[in-house]
Design a protein around this nucleic acid. Structure first.
Lengths: 200, 200, 200, 200
DNA sequence: AATGAATGAGACTTCATTCAT
DNA sequence: CATGAATGAAGTCTCATTCAT
């Protein structure tokens, strides 16, 4: 992930960039898009309003960039300690558990992603994700493999993803909002339930 | 679906009300809240800008009213032909199938509801829904019963709901956006998968 | 004061007219012009919004008509029991006392008049009053006479009026708003003070 | 007359602020509140519509700020050259004369204040002025002293103020509107008349 | 490179007035 | 005649973006 703008003092610049991103992330996560005007983001980041435009073309660009980063972070987390050689179930449980643990430890990221999905760009993004499958990622490969081995139900990838990730994200949201209280045991049960949905 | 405003000429009034509701529903569903200014709603409905305010106190009121109605419609649909005396699985499959059929036949309603959930009122609404369980509805009762009979996993209602309804809604969205193509056979499979997630 | 609109059922019409006038008077007096929209006046008067326009050309016309009536009422009150043959002081005290008594017994009329004086028409009205002295009224004659007899200071009528009526109206307003408490004795003192201002 | 908003370039900012204040003062004075929409104020001030909101939170804030300043200016003017040690009559005449001279030289300020007094805030302001007499000002002290020395009639402060200031303001308004023509001699006579109203 | 004051399009809402019923 | 639903111009205020410093 290269920095889209050149900068002579990398440290200083990276700092400001990060401050802007963090401020925008927090505001959008906590107040929604409509509660995150550029002026407020700038103030919270401790920079001038015009400065944001030196790092991002416009508000959309900023938002999209944050989304991309957060999503990549999700993948990183799921790949950390991924038992590449383990059986399908172990690999899937690892992914689900890692994701849930991350989401509830980074509530702002989850809330941001949810805000993003409902917006003009949300749909575009998902379209690109599903159809622009240029590069098969590890998770897609796992699902494909499980289908091929007749461990999973013979369904399209998009559907399998919804069956597995949909409930996990919903339940994490409920945890963050205080509607349910996840602990290690419960996480295991929930991930297990999602596994059941996929299993033949 | 009662008419909250008095009106001397029910026909004419109901027409305009419906036109406003339909216009707002479409615009919000297709463009998001941010793409549905009151002036545009009025124009699409073929009424003057001020006319909306004869039927709804303000924009929030309009949006909430639509949401409430759409949600009630969802429940109605799920309850239509509900096999009250049938086994748990049959009842659950009926609910899931009916919901999916309705959602993909009324794509605007689904998109609207998704937009609504991300907004200042979205969270409040869910909170009230989960904690203000004054009146147990038929669906909650079904789930409670299935847990008591040890047919479902022993999990909280909120979690069971996420496991069952979360993927269904996600997949319907993907169908609407053209990412997957649901037919009767596929619907059955998907609902079956969600059942598997709940089953002990 | 003829009724500007013809009407076949004088009773019914007069009733509606009065209701409209009373409603407008109250609303303007209590909430100011900005708190008295036509729709609210109509509702308070128990008539349709459009009905007002059968009796008055527009809002300005309504307001002006009320003002004219209220002002005429003031004159009537001051002329009631007016000691035409009495000495100047007695006549003036009668006028002042009668006015004060009326104003504090009809707070709405006072408040309305004050609202009226500050408005686009307020100035026009005063201009006409001062320069369009076509018909000398009794009060102007009294002041002229008092000046001629060298009882009053040799000042213009407009100034003498301000010296006498200005404080009286102000003090009545303060009474209505609860800032001072007028009783018969105090009224006498205040009118006496205003007399002192005029006296040579 | 402190600047309530911070600004890095005092000169430029103060200029715009002043332009906005002057524009609002003129429009309100000449056309009333109803004739002074924010867009018109902005245009007259030669700034963008949104700019006003960098200096004032909202329209009320702008109006109140102007009023406060104008009122303070009135007090300043009356206190300039105030003969603190002189006899009561001299002090009072100074106050009255200074006020009248100022009002007729700054007709916009007088008209503005009169507009202000008739408005939702007008009454509140007067109430606070009369009852919230936390800090006795010089003028109140003068009146209190004159009552104590039995120079003035034994009346409440609010009444004495109405007797003295009421006619002065009214007459200044008439001068501004061209109904009377004040000169030094006439001012002296009028102030003298108001003194007579107070004197025992 | 950074700032933040300035901008003005556009959002929501109100209300005097009209006109079909 | 009376009604009140409908209208749309106009009001207040917000905010993404620009640009002089």
């Amino acid at each position: 992930m290269e920095k889209p703008e050149k900068c002579e003092k990398p440290d200083k610049c990276a700092e400001k960039r990060e401050a802007i991103i963090q401020a925008a992330l927090e505001l959008v996560a906590e107040q929604g898009f409509h509660g995150a005007p550029m002026a407020m983001i700038a103030e919270k980041a401790g920079v001038g309003a015009g400065t944001i435009y030196r790092y991002f073309e416009n508000k959309d660009d900023l938002i999209r960039w944050i989304y991309k980063n957060v999503e990549e972070r999700f993948v990183e987390v799921m790949m950390q300690g991924y038992p590449e050689k383990g059986p399908v179930r172990e690999r899937l449980v690892h992914i689900g558990t890692a994701l849930v643990r991350h989401l509830i430890s980074e509530p702002l990221q989850l809330r941001f992603v949810e805000q993003f999905h409902n917006s003009p760009y949300g749909v575009d993004h998902r379209r690109e994700k599903i159809f622009g499958q240029g590069r098969k990622d590890v998770i897609s490969e796992l699902f494909d493999e499980a289908v091929a081995q007749q461990i999973f139900k013979p369904l399209e990838l998009a559907i399998l993803f919804s069956l597995f990730f949909g409930p996990l994200v919903d339940i994490c949201r409920d945890h963050i909002l205080g509607f349910v209280k996840l602990d290690d045991a419960l996480i295991e049960q929930v991930v297990g339930a999602c596994w059941d949905a996929l299993r033949r």
